[in-house]
Amino acid sequence: MIIQRISRFLSDFDNLMPLFAAACAVIAALAIISLPFAYYDDQLYPKSIDEKSPLDPYDRGGPPFSRAEIRLQYPNNSPTAGYVTAYLTPFSWFLANTTLHTGTTIVAHPGGILDEILYNTRGLDTVVETAILFIAFAIGSYIFRKGSR
């Protein structure tokens, strides 16, 4: 019986990772076949790059202590949007004024450049970067365990 064989295969949890990897590979192949995806120009969270700015690529525009013009899905829910996250801490402000590399550092203090990153990408890039790091650890631990058996 085919169902018996499938359930016997699934009952061994060591087969789980290969199965999931195969499913991912199939879906990735499907995604590659259906390329290109059309980029929708009217983005809610637009991104513009000003290479001259010290805050590049995370410059939202506008002086940090006044209201910046940012776009929102529901503007009526956020009357104070554009004030708080446009704030740079003194250290970020110092970096931005003296170097051109604020955008290349992860200055992770409240109101710092991390907030700018999270605004501009809605957090997607940081999460994806972290996920890739986690995957690297996962592969590393898998290989380590394989070797110790």
Partner: peptide, 17 residues
């Protein structure tokens, strides 16, 4: 862990398209 890549990749592609 591996699923998070697909999950967030998918939502990023929804934002792009």
């Amino acid at each position: 862990l591996a699923a998070t890549v697909l999950l967030f990749g998918g939502s990023a592609m929804v934002a792009a398209t």
